[in-house]
Design a binder for these strands. Structure first.
Length: 318
DNA sequence: AGCCTTTGACCAGCG
DNA sequence: TCGCTGGTCAAAGGC
């Protein structure tokens, strides 16, 4: 590619990696994501992961959720939809093509929240550490079908599709040149169960996290590694609430936070979020937040600050 | 031999 | 209406 990000990789300094995810307007509606792409069953939801530079977020090697939580809590950011969790090893494509780290978020109804919590807890407890399987961090098989350098973004965005025959789920991952994932967007929901470990997909945490029998109907359950995501779909408003750490729009857990936006009018669509495989164990990047407050990241734009250090501290799956 | 990744080009949507 | 950006498809190469 010439023009894309490749060149960037080498030249960009990690020191100032601030990338902005501004493709869609969080506050309003996602133009592209919403309705269209799915073929009926799926609704589109997006999960954006970003690191906010503004936040004094540092990703220490031993970054643990707790630690993250503390940090989060201390920083009081309101208006932020955060999803915590996910991003485990932030290694991007080049290294692990099939294992893009991603975060999955789904829309959930408040009713399901409880369930989410439940799941979360379970997940937390069962999160294997190795999560990342070959197939995918979430347990699904993804195929990379495109890569593009987004304007305004220092990092190229990779497009992945679920390998499943009938599954139209797609996800976009932005990775920094150092391999850190700066943003992840999920579109659609899997209409099939995750590949079983024995099938080739590692049962890793990802799988555990994402076990969704089927999302199909009405069940908006969100499972996030460590947290559940709740979306508020009020008149068009899309607020995501993370319950894991307890983010109700204001607090973020810490690590990579993922923001998912559902633009699907189908509100009923269920969403499922998956945590990354690593979940708690791999604290790599984790902090994402969409802060609306300053207007800086108005929902749509996220700033991510990736430190090289974090990268070096980052541990790769394997 | 098969599958996946990478790259370039094309198309669509939005400003 | 034109331009720009994002997203997707298709082809080729590599593993």
């Amino acid at each position: 590619m010439g023009g894309y990000g490749d060149g960037d990789r080498g030249s960009s300094n990690s020191s100032g990696l601030s990338f902005r995810f501004k493709p869609y307007g969080y506050g309003d509606a996602l133009p592209g994501f919403c309705t269209s792409g799915n073929q009926g069953n799926d609704f589109d939801f997006e999960a954006n992961i970003l690191l906010d530079p503004a936040m004094d977020f540092q990703f220490p090697m031993g970054f643990s959720e707790e630690a993250a939580l503390e940090k989060c809590t201390s920083g009081s950011r309101t208006d932020v939809n955060v999803l915590d969790s996910m991003i485990a090893n932030a290694t991007c494509s080049s290294d692990s093509p099939s294992n893009p780290i991603y975060v999955q978020s789904e829309t959930i109804h408040e009713e399901n929240i409880e369930s989410h919590h439940h799941l979360l807890e379970e997940q937390k407890g069962t999160l294997p550490a190795t999560a990342i399987g070959r197939t995918s961090d979430d347990g699904y098989n993804w195929r990379k079908y495109g890569k593009k350098l987004i304007k305004g973004s220092k990092h190229p965005r990779s497009y992945y599709k679920c390998n499943h025959e009938n599954c139209l789920v797609k996800k976009k991952i932005e990775c920094a040149h150092d391999g850190q994932i700066t943003g992840i967007l999920y579109k659609g929901t899997h209409n099939h169960p995750q590949p079983q470990p024995g099938s080739g997909a590692p049962p890793g945490p990802a799988s555990s996290l994402y076990e969704m029998p089927e999302m199909g109907e009405g069940g908006n359950s969100v499972k996030v590694k460590g947290g559940s995501v709740q979306k508020n779909r009020e008149s068009g408003s899309k607020d995501i609430k993370v319950h894991d750490g307890k983010v109700d729009g204001l607090e973020r857990t810490s690590s990579t936070s993922v923001v998912t936006e559902l633009s699907d009018p189908l509100s009923a669509a269920q969403v499922k979020s998956l945590g990354t495989s690593e979940s708690t164990e791999t604290p790599e990047l984790s902090s994402i937040l969409a802060s609306h407050d300053d207007g800086v990241t108005q929902g749509s734009s996220f700033s991510v600050d990736v430190d090289d250090e974090s990268e070096s501290k980052r541990r790769y799956p394997v």
